[in-house]
Amino acid sequence: MTGRRDLDGIWTVLASRPPAAGVVTAPTGYRVSAGDLLAGIDSEGRRHLLIPLSAGEAARTDTKGRAVHLARIAEGGLQYLTVFCRLPELHRVFTQFCRELVESIEDAASPAREASAAFDRWRALFSEAEQHDQLSDEALIGLMGELVAVERILGHGAPPDLRFWVGPHSDLHDLRSATHAIEVKATLAREGRIVAISSIDQLQEPEGSDLVLLHLRFDRDPGGLNLTELITRVLAAGAHRPELERRLREVGADPHDLATYGARRFRLTDMRAYDVGGPAFPRLVRSDFAIGDLPPGTLRLSYSIDLTNEPPIPLSDALVDEVLASLAEEVAHAMDS
């Protein structure tokens, strides 16, 4: 059959203009007896494959899994069985599944029944993939560290749309305003303050801005906070839920299935902040090299710094609070102007 399109490409294009509600769709070039198969993106950015149903055709639904669901949906006056992926980190596996599925259902007597059977065949792989792609303790602690900082900044009146929290968007630093940047580092290590720096630019102040490194230490504690409870606190501090959930998805934490992290509880035991541009702070930046940049042939540089001893001297609590308040005020003012 001609006109077949690459599923991943269709989803990528649709994701550039997600709907405010419902599902936006596009033809795939595949067809069953009841009509054209559609690819879709919903308002939460989830990928769908819509299989048209004949009048009276039975279609099994299954919404028990964490990764992929089967559901009925009405679109354009027609009834569809939709298969959709709830975890962005599983898009690759889901695309493989859908490519197999569209080939297998074209000539099937009951496309819905064949889709259900294919779903069962792939269930174990979905389960394995979703377990593999849960946030590691290191990534979870990193996220919780950022959420602690976000909660404090919201407490100083920052906009609820979280525009200042840019880390999930792969920005160089985690929190930003016009003249302040904050890089958040969190750890479970009980001894020392060894901090991994991922690039030559991570400890470089943005032009016209200062840069603070916020170091948080957590301990495992059955009586401590889990991710759901910390998110609840951030929402209580004023965060808009859609913006918060969007950032959670971007870092690989499904906002609709946070219960999987419920048993992983931590207590914040120490938080220190450092002026990265201050005296005796250990760092490498491009200007440290004789040519003003990384030597030719050096593609990437990562390193670790030790903040265990003083100097460098951490900022006082009052000064940290001042920086957070100033960042919040700047972002709020920029939104109003």
Rank of each mutant, 00 (worst) to 15 (best):
M1Y: 06
R4L: 11
D8K: 05
W11Y: 03
L14E: 03
A15I: 06
R17Q: 13
A20G: 11
T25S: 11
L37A: 00
A39R: 08
G40K: 10
G40I: 04
D42S: 09
S43R: 10
S43W: 02
E44W: 13
G45R: 01
L50R: 01
A58Y: 12
A59S: 02
T63I: 10
H69D: 06
L70W: 03
R72F: 07
I73Q: 00
A74R: 11
L78V: 05
Q79V: 08
V83P: 06
V93F: 04
V93E: 14
T95H: 02
F97C: 05
C98K: 08
R99W: 09
E106R: 06
A112P: 11
A112R: 10
A112G: 05
E114D: 07
A115K: 01
D120G: 13
D120W: 14
W122L: 15
Q131D: 13
Q131Y: 11
H132C: 10
H132Y: 10
H132A: 14
D133E: 11
G142K: 02
G142I: 03
M144Q: 09
M144S: 00
E146H: 04
L147E: 01
L147R: 03
R152M: 00
H156T: 09
G157C: 13
P159H: 03
L162I: 10
P168R: 01
H169Y: 05
H169R: 14
D171T: 00
A178F: 14
A181K: 01
I182G: 00
E183H: 05
A186Y: 08
T187P: 13
E191H: 00
R193E: 15
A196C: 05
I197Q: 04
D201S: 11
E205W: 00
P206G: 01
S209D: 07
D210V: 02
L211G: 04
P222T: 06
N226E: 01
T228D: 11
L230S: 10
I231P: 06
R233I: 00
G238D: 07
R241W: 06
L244C: 10
V251W: 13
A253S: 13
G262I: 05
R265T: 03
F266R: 00
T269K: 08
T269A: 03
R272V: 03
V276I: 03
G277C: 02
P279T: 03
P279I: 04
A280D: 15
F281Q: 08
R286L: 10
D288H: 11
F289Y: 10
I291G: 08
G292H: 09
L294S: 08
P295W: 12
P296N: 11
S304T: 15
L307M: 04
T308N: 02
N309Q: 14
I313V: 14
S316V: 01
D317Y: 02
E322F: 00
A325T: 03
S337M: 15
